[in-house]
Design a protein around this nucleic acid. Structure first.
Ligand code: SF4
Ligand code: SF4
Lengths: 156, 156
DNA sequence: TTAATAACAGACCATTTTGGTCTGCGATTA
DNA sequence: TAATCGCAGACCAAAATGGTCTGTTATTAA
């Protein structure tokens, strides 16, 4: 169903928050969890993973917390998703070795699906965290409550 | 984690199979399920939904079965996913009214995520079933076992 | 030195989603 | 009118996900 996990949502919110801080400012989990009403324990997990993957820098002490390790420009959305969810993939068989799909022997849709997957990957990798944070709403957008284009189901 | 469901996989396989039939030829569930080793009952469910959404034509009789209702050119991959999984969405909150996300009041990532979602939607809608079936492998591809580009994790 | 603070680690459980099964009904036609 | 096919929905099992709990380790300020 192509849905992002809640953990990725949390990660992006936290990264958004951290991006808005002053350079070098560290923020602890509690502050972020309060800002967005996210349960602290799970947010902790999320930030730990981001830190382990080199996206965040942790400061392991009283008055410590987290800060961005790299400039937001150098972190892609794909990086974030990969850090949290592990490898992303449209297909069950994308890893190849991983799972044994019953259909893999007779499958004639794998190649085209890989192409679609590649496009989505590219799209996600192409967008940096900075671009993500500072992007303008395409239409009236968030201020008007509804972001979807009015009246038509298409996404062009 | 952005993964397509197995049901969509089944749907695409079945549609691929049906596309390869001669014009007007009807095929019953058993044939398709044997061709790809898909459990008949679940494949039945999948084809029923495709039929209800106007993608397939069902022939409800002995020697009956299914055939494409529209030319493959006029069916998009998004149509298929929507038919099977219901509405697709990267975000939990995409429906707006549907679920109450705890973060929605303070959320500053919704708009950019909607944009990404829009791009993915466009991408899926832009690819027709015909294009999907007849697409050439981008690289050595399926014959070589591995489809991913060798040696590098990027998807460009 | 030590107590407080904050991240780290992992086991653990609850809920939801997904994949798959079972049973019976309805339409068509040979 | 019986065999062949799809239709419909309840149902269950497995997996993924969201979230909780318990404790440990690193740092620093008192
Ligand atoms: S059906 Fe084909 S594309 Fe889908 S998981 Fe199996 S091998 Fe991969
Ligand atoms: S956090 Fe924002 S984008 Fe994510 S589901 Fe909630 S409102 Fe939507």
């Amino acid at each position: 169903m192509l849905k992002l996990t809640k953990k990725v949502d949390y990660a992006l919110l936290a990264l958004s928050f951290l991006s808005q801080q002053e350079e070098g400012q560290v923020v602890n989990i509690r502050e972020i969890s309060e800002a967005y009403q996210i349960p602290t324990e799970i947010l902790a997990k999320v930030l730990q993973r981001l830190s382990k993957k080199g996206i965040l820098q942790s400061h392991h002490a009283p008055k410590g917390g987290y800060s961005l390790k790299k400039p937001a420009k150098n972190v892609s959305i794909l990086d974030v998703i990969n850090a949290i969810d592990g490898s992303v993939g449209i297909l069950s068989c994308s890893d190849g070795h991983d799972k044994t799909c019953q259909q893999i022997d007779n499958c004639d849709i794998r190649s085209p699906l890989e192409r679609i997957q590649g496009k989505i990957m590219w799209l996600l990798e192409d967008m940096s965290l900075e671009e993500f944070i500072h992007s303008e709403p395409t239409t009236g957008g968030v201020l008007h409550g509804s972001i979807n284009l009015p009246g038509q189901p298409r996404y062009h």
